[in-house]
């Protein structure tokens, strides 16, 4: 691996990291705020792109397509939410059901397994051709970064409002939330919709970036999202205390993930093994809070106090 090749590949890796960072924020909303592992995102990570590409191919404006892609993601979250709350299906299973259903729906949206779109013929917002040597206002890195800043501001605002506080309380302690008159089912559905909306948007941007939507583009998305969340927390949790900075840490986590991935690829590692590698790394990081509580906890600590790793260091 030579340094010039690596430097050459950097902007692309950062762009991917940024786009997946939006998706990772979505995962953060369910996994950390709501305390639900939502597997819908593997499906939504294709739905958003499929909707966006098909709309643009049929002549719609890119912004309208992005909005509809986001709404499509929210709809997927709504379905999972209904499975989970109204039908009483455990959250993980509810997500798996929607994810499976979305596979068919994604095929129907695209009419086939893969739809490509050319940056020359269509007015794409982001593209892998636009990561360097283009005017600043066309630069994909800058555009996605602006998206992220805007999203973090909006989310920070929402989670500081009554409705956002209720959502956080729902994720933290359902019994308490209900005792304080919070409709926990509504909040779970709302959280799933916000999360999947973000994933849908991320997917739409990714499809434009890579120039195609593919029915398999969301495979393993949840694990990548978790990787970003975990990397972000591991590196920045000591310095970033504020909620907005937590979200920023997740995006940085995603960028780091893609940079590391790029280096690993350039080192000549068999790319077939990448998903296995990711799964192992994420698995180990997920286990760390559990190991810590099992082998290094103070006497008398209760398991639920340490459930959320860095978030709740409870001690009497």
């Amino acid at each position: 691996m030579s340094i010039p090749i690596l430097l050459n590949a950097l902007p692309g890796a950062v762009a991917q990291g940024l786009i997946w960072g939006i998706m990772a924020i979505g995962v953060y909303v369910t996994f950390r705020v709501l305390d639900i592992a939502d597997l819908t995102v593997d499906g939504t990570m294709c739905t958003g792109g499929a909707v966006c590409i098909m709309m643009m191919l049929s002549g719609h404006n890119v912004i309208v397509s992005l909005i509809v892609a986001t709404l499509a993601g929210m709809a997927a979250g709504l379905i999972t939410g209904i499975f989970h709350t109204f039908m009483g299906i455990p959250a993980i299973l509810a997500g798996i059901l929607t994810q499976l259903a979305l596979y068919s729906i994604n095929l129907k949206i695209m009419t086939k397994a893969n739809q490509s779109i050319s940056v020359d013929q269509y007015d794409l917002l982001v593209s892998l051709r636009n990561v360097r040597d283009v005017p600043l206002y066309q630069n994909t890195l800058l555009i996605v970064a602006l998206f992220i800043v805007a999203l973090i501001i909006v989310l920070y605002w929402i989670f500081g409002r009554e409705i956002g506080c209720a959502l956080r309380a729902t994720g933290c302690n359902e019994n308490m939330a209900r005792a304080q008159g919070i409709n926990t089912n509504f909040n779970k559905v709302l959280g799933l919709m916000i999360s999947n909306g973000l994933v849908g948007l991320s997917s739409a941007l990714l499809a434009q970036y890579q120039g195609f939507a593919d029915v398999n583009m969301g495979r393993g998305a949840i694990v990548i999202g978790l990787a970003a969340v975990i990397i972000g927390e591991a590196i920045f949790s000591k310095i970033f205390r504020n909620f907005a900075l937590h979200l920023l840490a997740v995006v940085l986590g995603s960028i780091i993930y893609y940079l590391v991935l790029q280096v690993v690829i350039l080192m000549g590692v068999d790319t077939d093994m990448l998903k296995l590698l990711t799964a192992v790394v994420v698995g180990i990081f997920l286990a760390i809070p559990f190991w810590k509580s099992k082998y290094f906890s103070k006497f008398g600590k209760r398991p639920q106090e340490i459930k959320r790793g860095g978030n709740t260091n409870a001690g009497n």
Binding site: C165, R168, A177
Partner: peptide, 27 residues
């Protein structure tokens, strides 16, 4: 009875709004 990951004042604010519709007013 309390939300562990939220602050003391945030917990009280949640309780203060018991029985009211939660809107986009400040938490």
């Amino acid at each position: 009875g309390t939300a562990a990951t939220m602050g003391i004042e945030e917990n009280l604010a949640l309780a203060k709004r018991r029985g009211r519709r939660r809107t986009l007013r400040p938490g």
